[in-house]
Design a protein around this nucleic acid. Structure first.
Lengths: 353, 353
DNA sequence: CTGAAAGCGCTTACAG
DNA sequence: CTGAAAGCGCTTACAG
């Protein structure tokens, strides 16, 4: 503190000027003058006047310390939050998170100090949980570290994942999208217009959200009375389906395909191009999620859209509920419906069986 | 605190486990083990180990109170940070801010709790400066409240604005883009290919960054030996230029136009369409900034691009430098060059004078 | 080298 | 109704 620094008035200054104790001043300033404490209006006025005359502003830091909560919700991503490539991925979640935080009166603490150099982030740095800076945290990220999350559970730190996450031996809180139901509905839409052989094209990954889609695929087929043929569920390398693979599916009588992600859908469309296939004339295509921003020119894909903004908002609500709960052991899950997108890439198959 | 709640470890817990006083533990944990204090490596190890075993993380609120600093950099916007409409506006700044914060090891505190209901935000809530939760803050936003910024200056709170801001009677720190130089350069580019009558189309607003462009416009003309004709500097309502306005300019012999913003450029292009004007054949067009995301299909506009990411990063660096400074009265400004964009909308005028 | 103690600015039972 | 005091969790001279 240099001599230039303008010393701000403290509670004690207000109290002295009003001729009361700092306790009384605090009570008045915080409007805690009902119930047990009953402070005469006259005294209240003196305190209020003194505060105004001095331009008193309570130090939020001291208040936080005294009250035991800091009103900070953490946001942690296992990759950079604002990377150019993931832009379209994270953004809607953040919009929802911000909206809910604003509504509930919380500030957001973005953990950006825990880089480990390779573009990834850690919760624990030197064995210390940075997240503790906040009362609780929202976790986001496609490539989370199961080890770190497990440690978080063990130390009883309150957090909510955006997206379903399962961990052996412990239940964790999350807000997910109901991919299974949305996928089943998409399949049923295809069956309803006459498709019987519907292929599933996904990535060679096994995250919870992908497993949900695959479950929905089988469920949808079963519910529609279609045979589930596992040779039609094909997982391709590097999020890319190539023309020969597509040809193989067609040879098996496939008339419709559901794709797991934007990049896969994109590669599928390219493959269709190569094979001179008309969509949806020769092949119906569904996308189980949102297209990438830079592939919006591929036409209006049928499928469903992920309620990202809502997921972010609900995660915040769930977290604050968790913070208000006495027993932190309770974990809670929520699953939000995806919104069907009609699109223009589903049509009856050309050759009716 | 219920019995189930896993009590967050405190410094005293670490100290006890390591068999030292909390003072010693604090010293070790803060790496203050050089100079006057010399703590044997063995003791240090014990403390570090205890901290790790307990998952100890210092409470930033307590630290802040005790030493007046907490390693948190605030980010404040006068509107929502992640709004859908401003998406393209804020995003690049945030990318830069995050990158710099990560590099310097700071976490980011996003102030989202201070909504006032009308979509705008306040720094002061109930007369209290929320920003004080952080050591200092980056301020962003097109529609700042001069009153609040003034109050911030008066209480000596360290902050850096992204974008030039002037306030009567006090100097504030900012990282700006050098719009004046970039605009002058753009004008000179036009003059160099033969334009003599260059119009300026802007908005009926008078923010610092717009004034800078207007100054650059005059400077560029003067530097090129062109007459400065104020009737060619036209400010239109609602960020929209209509065909009649454009016609008026053409009637005055205008062969080139610089536009102040994406929306204005967009409306200008529409007006050109209506008047059946070819760009750049009949009219050269320059944009003094970046196009909006959804107008990228209007072709590659000549002009310059704002170094948003760099501005964000530099603002963080400047802020941390400010925090290290003893006298808070010192304010600092930085101005970053814009990047010229060649584009394809500048060509020699059809009729050589 | 290390501990006891004061202090950061506020809140909150607890007495009276 | 109101004040003295303890406490929030940490840091930092100051002694020893």
């Amino acid at each position: 503190m240099s001599a230039f620094h303008i010393r701000r008035p403290r509670l004690i200054d207000v109290a002295q000027r009003a001729g009361v104790s700092s306790a009384t001043a605090s009570l008045v300033l915080n409007n805690r003058v009902t119930g047990n404490v009953r402070i005469p209006p006259e005294t209240q006025q003196r305190v209020l006047a003194a505060a105004e005359e001095l331009g008193y502003v309570a130090d939020p830091v001291a208040q936080s310390l005294a009250r035991g909560r800091n009103g900070l919700l953490g946001v942690f991503t296992f990759e950079a939050i604002f990377p150019v490539t993931h832009r379209d991925f994270y953004y809607p979640f953040l919009v929802g998170i911000e909206r809910a935080a604003e509504m509930l009166g919380f500030d957001l603490l973005l953990f950006t100090s825990t880089s480990v150099g390779d573009g990834r982030r850690r919760i624990y740095r030197d064995g210390r949980n940075r997240l503790r800076l906040a009362d609780g945290a929202i976790l986001l990220g496609v490539e989370e570290s199961k080890t770190e999350v497990q440690a978080l559970v063990q130390e009883g730190y309150p957090f909510v994942f955006v997206g379903r996450r399962e961990l052996e031996g412990c239940e964790i809180s999350y807000v997910a999208a109901d991919y299974a139901a949305a996928t089943a509905e998409l399949i049923e839409r295809m069956v309803n217009v006459g498709h019987l052989r519907i292929a599933y094209v996904g990535a060679e990954q096994f995250t919870e959200s992908l497993l949900d889609r695959r479950r929905g695929y089988r469920d949808g087929l079963a519910a529609s009375g279609c045979a589930v043929d596992d040779s039609l569920l094909c997982l391709c390398t590097g999020q890319r389906m190539v023309a020969p693979q597509l040809q193989t599916l067609l040879d098996q009588g496939v008339t419709a395909v559901v794709t797991e992600s934007g990049p896969i859908a994109y590669s599928l469309l390219q493959a269709c191009n190569e094979l001179m296939l008309d969509i949806p004339g020769d092949l119906s295509v569904g996308l189980m999620g949102d297209p990438f921003g830079d592939m919006e020119n591929v036409g209006h894909l049928s499928g469903f859209s992920i309620p990202r903004e809502e997921m972010g908002a609900q995660a915040v609500h769930l977290l604050t509920r968790l913070l208000d709960t006495k027993t932190p052991a309770t974990s809670q899950q929520a699953s939000l419906p995806c919104k069907p997108v009609a699109g223009s890439t589903i049509a009856p198959p050309r050759t009716r069986p």
